[in-house]
Design a protein around this nucleic acid. Structure first.
Length: 562
RNA sequence: GCCCGGUUCGUCUAGCGGUUUAGGACAUCGCCCUCUCACGGCGAAGAUCACGGGUUCGAAUCCCGUACCGGGUACCA
C-alpha cells in the first residue's frame, strides 16, 4: 500500500467538502449553490437557513404562502360529492382538506351536490351527506349548489362549444366503437376515440341513417395537455391518449367531466382538491377549460385511504361511513384531527399529534400532502379519541354519555340521580376511549353480574377456604361501613380512605395480601377482574346492594367449590 | 394490454445532498405507580429507507431501469 498516494487521493476528495463547508457559513454565497434566493418584505414562513437575514429560499414548501404570488382573499374551494350513498371517510377527508385550505388561506369553502345521475342519486343520501358534514363541522360558507338545478347553464355552455366547432355530434354506433376499442387493445395502444379513425364518409353515412348521437369534445391533435398538481407535481398526457371523449348524451344530458368544469367555472373555484382517483380525469377537464376559454383552477390530488390489506378502504374493512364513527362513540374533533394527519403532517420534526383545530388550520398546507396512500388505523383513532375524551370538560361528557346509558340500561330516574350518574361517569373517563366504552365500563352499576370471570373465580374463590376468607372480609367491610356511613354529599375520597384503612388493618393482621382480599370482592360486585377503584364503586353502589352481591356470589360459588 | 402515479419500523409519519449510529406517534413488550384495570412516568424492541444501476468526495434525499402496489382506461361520479 502506497500511503503517499492514498493521502493525495484523500486530500483531493476533500476539496469539494471545503467548498460545501464554506457555503454553509453564510448567506452571501448562497447563490453559488444554485438555489433561487428572493428578497421579501415579510409574511409567510422562512426556512431556518434564511431566517436571520432578509433572504428567503423559495422551496416547494413555502411557494403557496408567498404573498407576492397569491391573493389569499380570492381562494375558493369546493367539495363536490355525488349523493349515491353515505359520506365515505375518504370523501370526508377530501372535504376536510378543502375546508382546512380555505380556512388557512382565509378563503371560501363551498359545497356542491352532484346529483345529475338521476338513477343513482337519492334525496336520502343528500341529507346523509349534509348531516355528516355538519357533524364534522365542515359547513359551507355559501348556500349549497345543486347541480341538477343548473341544467340551463350546462346546455348554454354545450351549445357554445357546438357552435364554435369545439365539440361535435358523433353518430358512431356502439358496435363500431367496440370494434375500434378491440383493435386498439390488440395493437397495444390505449383506446382514445377520434373521429378521424372512421373511414372517410363513414360518419355522414351514420348520420344519414338517423342513428342516435353523443356529443364529443374535440381534443386538438398532436398536442399535450397537462397541469401542475400541488401534490404530485407536473402531469402531462398526450391528447392522443385522451381522445374526443363524450361530454353529453344524445338527449343533451351532460356528463360528469363537463358539468364539473362548468360548475367550477361559474362558482369561481380557484383550487380543486380531491381524491387521487381523479388524476386521470384532470387532463380531460383541462381540455374543457381550454375549449371554453376559461382559466383552469389549481389542482391538488389527495392519496387514497386504504384498509389494512392495502386495498382501497371499503365496507368489508369495517366502518367507512362518517356516521358509523359517530355511532361507535367517536368524537368529531378526534376524527377530524386523525383524518388531518392521514397524508399530511405539519412542518415540525416532532409535533404533538393532538392538535386543536385552530392549530391544524394555521399549520395546514396542501403542498405538505404526501403522494403515497395511507392505511386507516382504527387503533390510533381510538387512542386519539380517548385523549379528546380526557381533555373534554366533564359537563360535556355527561351530556354525551348519559343518553347512551339511558338507551342501553333501564335507568330509573329515582334511584339514579343526575349527580349519581355524573359520579359513575367520572370513574370511567380515563378508562374509556370511545363514548360507547362508558356503557361497557359501567354496566355493573345497572345490572348485577350474571356470571363471574371464570379464570379469576377459580383463582380467588376456587375453594371453601378462600370463600370463608371472602365472607369474613365482607363482614369486616360491612362493620367498617356501619361505623362510617357514606357521605350523602360532597367528595367521597376521605370515606374511601377510611374504609380502605379498615380492610387493610384486618388483612395485615391476618397476613393476607391486600390485593388478594380485594379481587374476590371485585369479582362479586362487578363480575370482572378490572374495574375502577373498588371503594369508589362501593360508595356509588350502596351498602345494601354491595351486601346483596357479596352474598349472592358466596352462595353461588360455594356450591361449585371443593 | 395501454396511460398516469406511488414505494422510510406492523401502522401513521419526519426527512428537501453532509448536523442521521434514520427522529416522533399508535400498537407491542418490560419497569415504576397500584386493590385490579386504566391514566401517567420511564425504558426496550422494531426500517439493510422496494430492488439494481448511475451522478457525486458524499445519496433515504438527484437521474435511469426493474419489481410490486394503486388509480384510470364508460353515453358513472
Amino acid at each position: 500500500m502506497d500511503f503517499a498516494a492514498a493521502f493525495l487521493v484523500f486530500i483531493a476528495s476533500m476539496r469539494s467538502f471545503w467548498i460545501w463547508a464554506l457555503m454553509s457559513m453564510g448567506s452571501p454565497v448562497l447563490s453559488v449553490c444554485g438555489l433561487d434566493v428572493h428578497y421579501t418584505h415579510g409574511g409567510g414562513k422562512y426556512s431556518s437557513a434564511a431566517k436571520a437575514g432578509n433572504f428567503r429560499i423559495i422551496s416547494r414548501h413555502d411557494m403557496e404562502l408567498n404573498p407576492m404570488t397569491t391573493d389569499s382573499t380570492k381562494i375558493r374551494v369546493r367539495f363536490a360529492p355525488s349523493p349515491t350513498g353515505y359520506l365515505h371517510i375518504g370523501s370526508a377527508r377530501a372535504a376536510l382538506f378543502n375546508w382546512l385550505y380555505a380556512r388557512h388561506m382565509g378563503g371560501t369553502f363551498l359545497l356542491r351536490i352532484e346529483d345529475t345521475d338521476l338513477e343513482r342519486s337519492t334525496e336520502e343520501a343528500t341529507q346523509q351527506i349534509l348531516t355528516s358534514l355538519d357533524w364534522l363541522g365542515l359547513t359551507p360558507d355559501e348556500p349549497v349548489v345543486y347541480q341538477r338545478q343548473r341544467a340551463d347553464r350546462h346546455k348554454e355552455y354545450l351549445d357554445r362549444l357546438l357552435t364554435e366547432g369545439k365539440a361535435y355530434k358523433c353518430y358512431c354506433p356502439k358496435e363500431r366503437l367496440e370494434e375500434l376499442r378491440g383493435k386498439a387493445r390488440t395493437d397495444g395502444r390505449i383506446f382514445a376515440y377520434n373521429r378521424a379513425m372512421l373511414e372517410p364518409g363513414e360518419m355522414e353515412k351514420y348520420e344519414a341513417a338517423g342513428g342516435s348521437f353523443v356529443i364529443r369534445i374535440l381534443a386538438p391533435e398532436g398536442e399535450t395537455t397537462g397541469f401542475d398538481d400541488m401534490v404530485y407535481g407536473r402531469i402531462d398526457v398526450e391528447n392522443a391518449n385522451i381522445g374526443d371523449f363524450v361530454i353529453a348524451r344524445g338527449d343533451g344530458s351532460p356528463l360528469y367531466n363537463f358539468t364539473n368544469v362548468v360548475d367550477d367555472i361559474d362558482m369561481g373555484i380557484t383550487h380543486i382538491c380531491r381524491g387521487e382517483d381523479h388524476v386521470s380525469n384532470t387532463p380531460k377537464q383541462m381540455l374543457i377549460y381550454n375549449a371554453l376559454g376559461a382559466t383552469p383552477p389549481r389542482f391538488a390530488h389527495l392519496p387514497l385511504i386504504l384498509g389494512p390489506d392495502k386495498q382501497k378502504l371499503s365496507k368489508r374493512h369495517g366502518a367507512t361511513g362518517v356516521m358509523e364513527f359517530k355511532e361507535k362513540g367517536i368524537l368529531p374533533q378526534a376524527l377530524v384531527n386523525y383524518l388531518s394527519l392521514l397524508g399530511w403532517a405539519p412542518p415540525e420534526a416532532e409535533f404533538n399529534e393532538i392538535m386543536p383545530l385552530d392549530e391544524i388550520v394555521s399549520k395546514f398546507s396542501l403542498d405538505r400532502v404526501k403522494k403515497s396512500p395511507a392505511v386507516f388505523d382504527h387503533e390510533k383513532l381510538q387512542w386519539m379519541n380517548g385523549m379528546y375524551i380526557r381533555e373534554m370538560p366533564k359537563s360535556k361528557i355527561y351530556e354525551l354519555v348519559i343518553p347512551t346509558l339511558k338507551s342501553r340500561f333501564a335507568v330509573n330516574s329515582e334511584l339514579a340521580s343526575e349527580e349519581w350518574l355524573h359520579s359513575i361517569i367520572d370513574l370511567a373517563i380515563e378508562r374509556s376511549r370511545t363514548l360507547s366504552d362508558f356503557a361497557d365500563n359501567l354496566s355493573y352499576f345497572f345490572e348485577a353480574p350474571a356470571e363471574y370471570e371464570e379464570k379469576a373465580s377459580k383463582k380467588f374463590l376456587g375453594n371453601s377456604e378462600q370463600i370463608s376468607q371472602f365472607v369474613e372480609s365482607a363482614g369486616v367491610l360491612d362493620n367498617a361501613w356501619a361505623a362510617t356511613p357514606t357521605p350523602t354529599t360532597g367528595p367521597i375520597d376521605e370515606w374511601c380512605g377510611a374504609m380502605e384503612a379498615a380492610v387493610r388493618t384486618w388483612s395485615d393482621a391476618r397476613g393476607y395480601k391486600f390485593g388478594n382480599v380485594m379481587q374476590p370482592i371485585r369479582l362479586a360486585l362487578t363480575g370482572r377482574t378490572a374495574s375502577p377503584s373498588l371503594f369508589h364503586v362501593m360508595a356509588l353502589m350502596g351498602r345494601e346492594e354491595v351486601a346483596r352481591r357479596i352474598s349472592a356470589c358466596a352462595t353461588r360459588l360455594s356450591a361449585t367449590a371443593q
